[in-house]
Structure formats: structure tokens, C-alpha cells
Design a protein around this nucleic acid. Structure first.
Length: 217
DNA sequence: ACATTAATTGTGT
DNA sequence: ACACAATTAATGT
């Protein structure tokens, strides 16, 4: 128990220590609720009522938008030190979530109840900064996603996806099926299989069942 | 250890 | 896009 609290503080310090001023830092540690979820678990679903905002300490979350047919599109990933910026707005005006967030791997985070959000916005400059910066980052990432969707060919998008995945997983050894990639990139599994095969022939990756080794990307 | 089944991947049309 | 073959993992007997 002692140990668990320690690591939680350590991780929080590592990710957010320089970001928040002292009093806010202490207040978050006191009020925020620590939680963790496993790979594939849902952090937030479309239509969910937002009751808290997550500060991510460890791991990664995939943010997805779903259209009317239930087709999914990958928007961006959240990493440690990030937060779901969109959730701020939804929190403040009490709207429901328009995105879905799924854990890409084991993920730890601190939940801040919405009741504190507005209070801290007024009280702490570093908190306002944090939210604006984070919002800005999400906007940039989304713009990049739109750019890729519009201008890049699928093979380029796949390479970009693999690069992002390597970065987020902090490993060149990815455990993922072709189908999952296809769903993320909004295309069919067969196409992904073929493109991956060509990448393998170019010695950029090595393929195995449920795994992809990125060697020379 | 073996057989059966399901899931994943590879390829041709 | 569809169909099917080949391979591998999972499960039961």
C-alpha cells in the first residue's frame, strides 16, 4: 500500500511535476483518484456522460470516432503526460462524449472530478495553460490526421501508423493483427496484409502471427 | 498425444 | 472485393 502510493506519486511527478504549480500539484494528489485499465479496456465511450478528466501517467489510449454505420476512424493517440482535451469542453458544458477511448496497453491515470475543473481554471494559471496547450496539441494532431486521410496513399499511411505505434508502445516489437490495423485505418484486412508483405520484402519489417517487428522503417 | 475448431494470414482471380 | 488455402493457436478428449 505504501509502495503503491509512492509509485503513483513518482509517476505523477515525472509526468506533470514541472507543469503544475505547487499548490495545484498537492491538490491534485489529494483529490485525484488513481485508476488503471488493461489493454483493450474502454476508458470512455461515445455518448458517455463525463464525470471526470483523466491525466495519463503511463500507457496509451486510442481515440476513435464512429460514424452512423458504426464505422470507426482513428483520430489520435494519447500518451503519458496527455489528457483528453476534448473532455474539458464536454465537462464544462455537460455534453456527452463524442469520442471513444480504448487502452492500447496497460494504462494508468488520475481522475479529476468535473467539480474541480472550473474552480482550478480560475484559481491556477498553470492549469489554464495546461488545458490550452493540450487542446492545441490535439488540434494539431487531428489536422495531421485529416491531412493523411486526404492526401496520403494507403501505403504511406500504414508506414506512418506503424511509426506512431512503435513510439507509443515504446517497442519495435508490435503485437497486433492485420485486422486491427485495417479497422484503425478504415480499410480491409486483405489490403493491409498485402502492403505489409511488400514492406517485409523491402526488409523494413518482419512479420509473424500477431506480431510485427519493425526493423528498418 | 491427438483431433477438432477457431482465428489469422497469404494469394489468386 | 471475394473466395479459398495454409498456417497457427486454443481447446477438448
Amino acid at each position: 500500500m505504501e509502495n503503491r502510493t509512492k509509485t503513483k506519486q513518482d509517476k505523477f511527478h515525472k509526468c506533470f511535476g514541472p507543469v503544475f504549480e505547487k499548490e495545484l500539484y498537492d491538490e491534485i494528489l489529494e483529490i485525484g483518484i488513481y485508476n488503471d485499465i488493461n489493454k483493450g479496456d474502454l476508458l470512455i465511450d461515445i455518448g458517455d456522460k463525463l464525470t471526470y478528466i483523466p491525466l495519463i501517467l503511463q500507457g496509451a489510449v486510442k481515440i476513435i470516432r464512429e460514424d452512423h454505420d458504426g464505422e470507426e476512424i482513428l483520430l489520435y493517440f494519447l500518451e503519458r503526460g496527455d489528457t483528453c482535451a476534448i473532455s474539458f469542453v464536454s465537462c464544462i458544458n455537460l455534453k456527452k462524449s463524442i469520442f471513444r477511448g480504448i487502452a492500447e496497453r496497460h494504462t494508468e491515470y488520475i481522475m479529476i472530478p468535473i467539480t474541480k475543473i472550473e474552480e482550478w481554471m480560475v484559481k491556477y494559471k498553470s492549469f489554464r495553460r495546461f488545458i490550452i496547450d493540450s487542446y492545441h496539441n490535439r488540434l494539431i494532431e487531428m489536422a495531421e490526421t485529416i491531412e493523411s486521410l486526404t492526401f496520403m496513399k494507403l501505403d504511406e499511411r500504414l508506414v506512418k501508423y506503424l511509426e506512431a505505434k512503435v513510439k507509443i508502445m515504446r517497442s519495435k516489437n508490435l503485437q497486433i493483427s492485420h485486422q486491427e490495423i485495417a479497422t484503425d485505418l478504415h480499410t480491409s484486412r486483405v489490403v493491409i496484409s498485402r502492403l505489409l508483405k511488400t514492406l517485409e520484402k523491402l526488409h523494413k519489417i518482419e512479420l509473424g502471427r500477431q506480431k510485427i517487428q519493425v526493423t528498418n522503417l
